[in-house]
């Protein structure tokens, strides 16, 4: 890898299971310099972006993401985010970021009370974030979801804030909300716009062979924002 290539950290908690998928997407498909960083690591020096994968960290025992947020590496992720560097979490990664307080809101059990695995119709709600610049506002995407606890929930006040600050990055298409999330929200950023969490898996949609490459611009947006 050339010195100028941004370096990505893919965090691995015990029980993460989309870590290899994220690494494959960012490294093998997008061609970036990336490596795994263990949950007990105490430094993120040298990395330009942090990716938190899906899965069942610590078995999702107690509550999704509730144990992972106490992992040593999360102190570093917090510092990293406070420095304004990009942090992305998908699925369990989203849940962990919410539990850690780096993103507003919580993720509750799907209204169906069942695990749902499908390709969701997703809409780009804000194409001006560093994660979505390669999309157009309102662009329709097909992105896989696979979760039992994906019902994004915030207070009315928080929702008003999210809207006012343009923090809602993705919504499920009208009538295609798979989990009962408030306002059809599929992904949000923090107020500063450098932390994004979403339930859909963009890393599962980076190759046409597997059904959709609608997730690829997500990663190219992030890469471009680092160059």
């Amino acid at each position: 890898m050339s010195v100028s290539s941004p370096r990505f950290a893919v965090i691995v908690f015990p029980g993460s299971n989309c870590d290899k998928d994220l690494l494959w997407g960012i490294k093998n498909v997008a061609g970036m310099d990336a490596e795994f960083v263990r949950h007990d690591a105490t430094s993120l020096d040298g990395f330009d972006a942090v990716l938190i994968p899906g899965g069942f960290s610590y078995g999702d025992y107690l509550r999704c993401g509730a144990i992972a947020r106490f992992s040593p590496v999360m102190e570093e992720v917090r510092r990293f985010a406070e420095e304004g560097k990009p942090v992305f979490g998908t699925c369990n990664g989203f849940q962990i970021l919410c539990e850690a307080g780096l993103l507003p809101g919580v993720l509750l059990r799907n209204t169906s009370l069942r695990f749902v695995c499908e390709t969701a119709d997703v809409e780009v709600a804000n194409a001006s974030t560093r994660f979505t610049s390669e999309y157009a506002d309102g662009q329709q995407l097909r992105l896989p979801v696979a979760h039992a606890e994906g019902r994004y929930t915030v207070t009315d006040e928080e929702l008003a804030d999210l809207k006012a600050n343009g923090q809602i990055a993705f919504r499920y298409a009208k009538g295609h909300n798979p989990n009962g999330s408030v306002d059809d929200i599929a992904g949000v950023t923090n107020k500063a716009g450098n932390v994004l969490g979403m339930m859909p898996h963009p890393e599962r949609a980076v190759e046409k062979l597997l059904g959709s490459d609608d997730g690829l611009p997500f990663f190219t947006s992030l890469i471009n924002s680092l160059q």
Partner: peptide
């Protein structure tokens, strides 16, 4: 039934449940 199974993790699944056979690519 299969709506409740994660059929895509590991990002190799080309044909998910519902057709005659499931297909995964070999990286």
């Amino acid at each position: 039934i299969w709506h409740t199974y994660d059929s895509q993790v590991l990002t190799n699944t080309v044909i998910r449940p519902g057709s005659d056979a499931a297909v995964i690519r070999v990286r």
